[in-house]
Simulated assay, not measured.
Amino acid sequence: MTDDPSNRIIRLPTVLHKTGLSRSTLYRKMEAGTFPRNLQISTRCAGWREADVNVWLRNPMFYSAQHGV
């Protein structure tokens, strides 16, 4: 296992803080394919790869979850 911070899984409060999005907007963007999908960590726990969120932050207007850019 690597300690690379870009491979960290971050939870919803951190994603909302980093992006400035509301919870409903975040999930709406995920459905539209304009925000990275979350990962199911366990039955009741999900998170996002920090690297994926950082890619979105670099260019949110043109992000496509299908292409990752």
Rank of each mutant, 00 (worst) to 15 (best):
M1A: 15
A46F: 08
M30K: 02
K29Q: 13
Y27N: 04
R8H: 04
S6F: 02
L16S: 04
G47K: 03
G20V: 05
T2E: 13
N7G: 00
R8D: 01
M61K: 15
S64C: 13
R44K: 10
G33A: 11
L39S: 05
S42K: 09
R37D: 07
N59Q: 15
M1W: 11
L26T: 09
P36W: 00
A46T: 12
W56S: 06
S24M: 07
W56F: 15
R49C: 00
T14D: 09
T2R: 15
A51D: 01
M30R: 03
G68M: 08
P60Y: 05
P5I: 12
N38E: 13
I10T: 06
H17M: 12
S6W: 02
V53Y: 01
S6P: 03
A51W: 00
R44S: 09
L21A: 06
T14E: 15
R58Y: 10
G20S: 09
R8T: 02
L57K: 06
A46G: 05
E31C: 10
T14A: 14
P36Y: 02
R11W: 10
A46W: 09
T14H: 10
L12I: 14
T25H: 08
N7K: 01
S42Y: 08
N59C: 15
D3C: 10
R58F: 13
W56I: 09
T14Q: 14
A65Y: 11
T34K: 02
E31A: 14
T19Q: 04
Q66Y: 13
F35L: 04
S22H: 04
D4C: 06
D3F: 11
N54Q: 12
G47S: 07
S6H: 03
R11Q: 13
F35I: 05
N7M: 00
E50P: 03
S64N: 15
R11N: 12
K18M: 08
E50I: 03
L21W: 05
D4G: 03
L16D: 04
D4N: 09
F62V: 14
R37W: 06
R37S: 14
V15S: 02
S42I: 10
L57S: 08
K29W: 11
M61G: 14
V15K: 03
I41F: 09
C45T: 15
L12V: 10
K18P: 02
Y63T: 05
E50M: 08
G33M: 12
D52K: 01
F62Y: 13
T43D: 07
H67G: 08
M30W: 02
G20I: 07
F62N: 14
L39T: 07
G68P: 02
P36A: 07
W48G: 01
N38Y: 13
W48S: 01
Q66V: 13
L21C: 06
P60D: 05
E31R: 08
R11M: 14
T14N: 08
N7R: 00
L26R: 07
R37I: 11
L39V: 15
T2K: 14
L26I: 11
S42P: 10
A65L: 13
W56N: 03
I9Q: 00
A46I: 12
Y63E: 08
R44H: 12
Y27D: 03
L26E: 11
R49S: 00
P13L: 08
K29S: 07
T19M: 06
